[in-house]
């Protein structure tokens, strides 16, 4: 699967798609980028008059690029028509704030993909190349065709 094909089957859309492009995906991991839209609704409330991208959104961005996109690649042709996925665990540490309109790059490394569970280590860097956050995220992929 090519990066564009992977993005086309991701089960997200605006305002909850946090993948602009995938630069690289192989058996071992994924690398992709996303630019946070300064007009996103959550900036109005996080924080009042001081917009910063919420950590949960950074985690979601890491999961969509690092775990879900990689999982789609690894499933390849066995991917069901309606992909169902669930976040099963995330353990993240945050180092720097991400402000509206910043472009981040997420890289992931596969720890294992067994019995429909994909566990990865993920890292996010900002447009200056500085580490924003890192951690480990796992997701479950439902592959039953009739499910």
């Amino acid at each position: 699967m090519t990066p564009n094909e992977i993005i086309s089957v991701l089960p997200y859309c605006k305002p909850f798609l946090f993948v602009d492009e995938l630069m690289h995906v192989d058996e071992k991991g994924a690398k992709g980028a996303y630019a946070f839209d300064g007009k996103s609704d959550f900036y109005k409330g996080h924080f009042k008059d001081a917009p910063v991208t919420p950590g949960v959104i950074l985690t979601e961005c890491c999961a969509q690029i690092g775990v879900v996109s990689l999982g789609v690649y690894l499933l390849g042709n066995s991917i069901p028509k309606h992909l169902q996925i669930a976040l099963s665990s995330s353990e993240m540490e945050f180092y720097l704030p991400v402000f509206p309109n910043d472009r981040v790059v997420v890289t992931s490394q596969k720890k294992y993909f067994r019995f429909h569970k994909l566990k990865c280590t993920v890292k996010m860097h900002n447009s200056e190349g500085k580490l924003v956050c890192k951690g480990a995220i796992s997701g479950m992929f439902k592959v039953k065709a009739d499910g």
Binding site: S88, S89, Y112, R114, F115, H116, K117, S138, M140
Partner: peptide, 9 residues
């Protein structure tokens, strides 16, 4: 089910 995978591993 996710932790069950960890048990199996």
């Amino acid at each position: 089910s996710a932790n069950l995978v960890d048990i199996v591993l």
